[in-house]
Structure formats: structure tokens, C-alpha cells
Amino acid sequence: MRPSQDNSSHPVFFVLLGIPAWEKYHFWIAFPFCVMYMMAVVGNITILHIIRIDHTLHEPMYLFLAMLATTDVVLSSSTQPKMLAILWFHAHEIEYHACLIQVFFIHTFSSVESGVLMTMALDRYVAICSPLRHSSILTTSVVIKLGAAVMVRGLVLVSPFCFMISGMPFCPNNVIPQLYCEHMAVLKLVCADTRVNRVYGLFVAFSVGGLDIIVISASYVMILRAVLQLPSGEARFKAFGTCASHIGVILALYIPALFTFLTHRFGHQVPHVVHIMFANVYLLVPPMLNPIIYGVRTKQIRDRVIHACSGKDP
């Protein structure tokens, strides 16, 4: 057995237990996880390819969709291969720096995903409430700047997590009772005062998630008001269907993420299995659903996929 601690203040590796008390089901649980991961990767890469080759799709809505697809691929791939290795091959150990890198990618790209969903809500608001000004407000330059701002926000706010943890001493216990390295799970193994880290974590969560949820909610309230004023019942039904599907994707990200965030800090009575399953949902489900909701339901992309599968030109 290799030593779990070297001469420095941090372990050589952490042990990811997986899903405690469900060890005998690990092999079977991996199959739906693998299917969701493959669907996420194939679906998002397909969307990226279609948007890249079709110049008629180089518009704000599709550029934001490409950002979301890229984020989903990175977010899924930062966790799922290791999770499957744990469930299928009992590869429970993760090197210390690899764990911190996983923390960085999970939280950075969760922040980016939230920000991209916010920008997509703003795009829909402008398209529905000010359709004549849409092309002049959301130019390609503005879209790129919004995407860059969302990315920089995630990098700037999340990077301190890793730097703060890397300078702290760890307890002899190096076991993380879940499937991946997450900020609060790693922080619980630190043998020092972590109040600054916890306060900063709350600040990041509320400044990112809080702001994005407020903007998304305000955008969809104004969108729904505009939809209700449409003269055609068919147009209202179609718009409601689109809004409902988009809101469903947003809730699939925020509800499990909020549940996991609050459980780490206040939900000591929540069964650990429930906590772990919710923690996995917000990393597994949105990347799988986004290509279906935003891709398959978008006529231009759906037509492109159908023509590509049938071997015909659009």
C-alpha cells in the first residue's frame, strides 16, 4: 500500500468511495451513467459540428448554443471517465493535484454553464420583445464579448478555491465519500480553520447563481408577458412550449446544484445516498438534455441532422 501522505501538508492522493452503502450496485449503476455521458458527448459534438459547417447558423442564438455545447462536453468529461473507472474498475484513488484540477473544472464550467443559460435567456428576450432591434443589439461582436465575460467570470471567481485549499494542511483522513472531487467535500478534509473558504464559497455561489437566476427569471417573465399578447393561439402555444422546455433545462441544472450546495452546509440530516445522487444529477442530466431541448427542438439543426443521416444535402 502506498503512503497516503508525503512530507508536505497534503495527501499524495484522495480515495473516492463512490456511492457508500451501494457498492454492490456500482457495476450496474455505471451503465446508465455511461449512456448519459455518451449521449451528452455525441449530442453536443453533433451540434457543434452542424453550427460550424452551416454559415447560416452563425447567429446569436446558435453561437450561444455552441458555447453551451462546448461547456457541456468539458463539464461531462471532467468527471464522467473517472466516475466510470470507479464504478466499473474500482479505481478509487485520485492524485492530489488531479483532484484540485477536477474541482477547478467542475466549478468553473458550472459557472460558465449558468452564465451561458443567462445569455441565452437575454437573447430570447430581445428576439421576442424587440425583434426588429435583435440583429443590431446582439451583433457577433457582442455575443463573443458576452461569452468571454462569462468565461472570465468563472475563471476569476473559481481559481481562488484551488489556491486557498492548496496552501492548507490536511488531516490524515483522505477519503471523499462520493464519486468526484468537489470544493466542499475536499474542504471537509482540511485540518485548519476554513471559515474564510466557506464564506468565499457562499459569496461565489450567490454572486454567480443568484445574479443569473434573477436575470433569467426577469427575462422569462417579460417573455411570457409578450407571448400572452400574441393574437394567434397557435403562436402562443408554440412559444409557451419553447419557453417550458428551456425552463425545464434551467431547473434541471439549478435545483440539484442548489440542493447539493445547501446539503453540504446545512443538510446534515439528509441521507448521504440522496445527497450523492443529486450531486451527480446536475453533472449528468443537463449536458444530456441540452442537445435534445436546444438542438432537436430547433428546426434548423433538426433538419441538418436528418439530412446528414439520410445522406442528402439540405
Rank of each mutant, 00 (worst) to 15 (best):
I50S: 05
L48M: 15
M67W: 08
T46H: 10
L63G: 04
F31M: 09
P60F: 13
L68P: 08
L63C: 00
F64M: 13
V35M: 11
I45N: 07
I50N: 04
A40T: 09
M36F: 15
M38Q: 12
P60D: 10
F64T: 00
H49M: 14
M38A: 15
I53V: 00
F64Y: 14
F64I: 05
V35Q: 01
T56M: 12
M38G: 14
M39P: 07
M67V: 02
A30I: 08
P32T: 05
I50E: 02
I45E: 03
M36A: 15
G43I: 05
I53W: 08
C34V: 11
D54T: 04
M61G: 03
F31W: 14
H49R: 15
L57I: 02
M61F: 15
N44L: 13
M39S: 05
L63W: 03
M67L: 01
T46R: 12
L48T: 03
I53M: 00
L68I: 04
H58C: 07
T46N: 09
M61K: 14
F64K: 06
L68N: 06
V35W: 09
M36Y: 14
M39R: 03
A66F: 07
V35S: 09
T46L: 12
L65I: 02
F31K: 09
D54S: 06
L65D: 04
I51D: 06
L63V: 08
C34L: 15
L68T: 03
V42P: 00
H49K: 15
I53C: 06
M67E: 00
I45W: 12
A66V: 01
H49P: 07
L65H: 01
I50V: 02
H49G: 13
I53S: 03
V35P: 01
A66R: 02
